[in-house]
């Protein structure tokens, strides 16, 4: 599970090693990546929202 999280974070950052990609595609199930991806997007949204509210003070 931790591996999927790390891969999604790498995707958000935009950089990934080739052999890591092979491992992800070999073992990872696509639905897991999509769910974690959406969750990470939600975390990102809440994070930036809080950042914006604090910045607005």
């Amino acid at each position: 599970m931790w591996q999927v999280l790390k891969s999604v974070l790498a995707a958000f950052f935009g950089v990934q090693k080739d052999q890591q990609r092979k491992k992800d595609f070999e073992e990872g199930r696509p639905t897991a990546f999509i769910i974690v991806g959406l969750l990470m997007a939600l975390v990102l949204v809440v994070g930036i929202f809080l950042l914006a509210t604090t910045a607005a003070e």
Partner: peptide, 19 residues
């Protein structure tokens, strides 16, 4: 150069484009 980065970045662009 960086085929993996291209694939991962493209999918993250898809999600970020909704925000």
């Amino acid at each position: 150069f960086g085929y993996a980065s291209m694939v991962y970045a493209t999918s993250s662009i898809a999600i970020l484009s909704f925000l």
